[in-house]
Design a protein around this nucleic acid. Structure first.
Lengths: 239, 239
DNA sequence: TCAAAAGTGTTTGTCCTACACCCATGT
DNA sequence: ACATGGGTGTAGGACAAACACTTTTGA
């Protein structure tokens, strides 16, 4: 049995049907909630124009062309959906339950991505693409609700907040802006004093000489990310 | 272009060729090094009996049948290779670089598994299956060296050591045995006193009334895992 | 002059580490 | 008796939370 399997010559020759590969992407951005005004996580969904699940909302994605890298396919569907480029893109998980799609056996390699808030404001929103608050989603096609749940969990428990928060901001930013991102993702208030210290001691920021004036209080200093600090990465596929 | 892609009817109809899905598994066990006698990580590899990479060692795996779950396929190849059942099995990553296999486009969903030490001692070792020390591997087929590197990194940086160490041990064990597992995985000595406290305060152990006699020192108490403690899990696919 | 947010200082408690020390057993 | 590892106690340092306080601006 072992020998049979290991020496099998080609995937085309074995009796049972093959699984089909798809790539989907969970795309997050941060923008003010309609009511509270507080920044919350939003994501774009695509309305299905065919069966199965015609009319339901689903994650952006598509079949994997044999000549395209996985991450490239994720970035492409992201671009096609939002007309944006990802500031952060990472493989999330591969979902392959037999019955997750009614007819075909579909295995989906799912990526998660972050895009900048300001840019996402003016992103394309058509008849078949709409942004939703991440914690108020309608029932989605396939197992996509579960996938978004998992992506949210991963975002919130990711240790290297530094790179993540960076992905939501511009090149320079104040500590208050950075703290606002952390608070939105973690869904809890952070002490400004302690936040400052923990960020500064992490060494991932470079302080500029610029300040932001115009508010009726002391001007805040602008900071920039230290790209050299991004080297503390796992030796794995993330690189 | 977006519309074209999203409304595409079937993966069978688009022009370019499809990718092929495979499942591979990195199987770890703990056993004494031949020289030092210290416990180290070992894993089984399979010799390839066909091109590409004929004669090279590779991870156990095979094509994914359309009617088999991903994790089930991983467990099956594990069983076929080692005649063992996994005590721990988790999806690691999906590797899909275009050129990772010379001819076909192969996308491999890779799992990592842990098996018990004592059991692995008497595991099947044939002409085409052999156990290797995880940090002294020969050049492997495809990108399998990179995959093993990543699996090792994940094993060592996994936060919930509790379940992992458990997978290498029997139902009851002494704290010294548990500590030996942690030391082998982390490759550093741990203070017995502090190790005891950190484990006990984690609440994942149940102390039994049994003790291990026979050694020329105070008998060590046997512990058992608290399955209820395993509930502190992510809400994701791991469950 | 006052409100508001930037930024600093200080206290307190918690966790981790190192290491001294006692306990129980086989030889 | 004594060597050996099981098991407990405790002091010191690192770090994080809480919060009082000073600084600098616009109104």
């Amino acid at each position: 049995m072992l020998e049979h399997y290991l020496t099998e010559q080609s995937p085309l020759e074995h009796g049972s049907a093959r699984a089909t590969l798809a790539v989907s992407t969970v795309i997050f951005t941060l923008r003010p909630d309609d009511e509270s005004g507080l920044k919350t996580l939003w994501l774009p969904l695509v309305r299905r124009t065919r069966d199965p699940h015609l009319g339901l909302w689903a994650l952006p994605g598509g079949w994997l062309p044999a000549d395209e890298e996985l991450a490239a396919a994720a970035a492409r569907t992201l671009r096609e959906t939002t007309e944006l480029s990802p500031r952060y893109l990472e493989q999330l998980y591969t979902f392959g339950d037999i019955d997750r799609s009614p007819d075909l056996r579909v295995v989906s390699v799912v990526y998660w991505a972050l895009v900048r808030s300001e840019v996402a404001e003016r992103a394309s929103v058509g008849e078949n693409v709409r942004w939703f608050a991440a914690d108020q989603l309608p029932p989605l096609a396939f197992d996509h609700n579960r996938i978004v749940e998992y992506a949210l969990w991963r975002l919130r428990t990711k240790v290297e907040y530094a790179r993540i928060a960076h992905a939501f901001l511009g090149d320079t930013f104040t500590l208050a802006q950075l703290r606002e991102v952390h608070e939105a993702v973690l869904q809890k208030a952070l002490d400004p004093a302690n936040f400052r210290r923990s960020i500064e001691s992490s060494g991932s920021l470079i302080s500029t000489d610029q300040h932001v004036a115009g508010a009726r209080h002391r001007p805040a200093r602008l900071f920039r990310y230290d790209d050299r600090a991004a080297e503390h990465e796992p030796p794995g596929p993330t690189l």
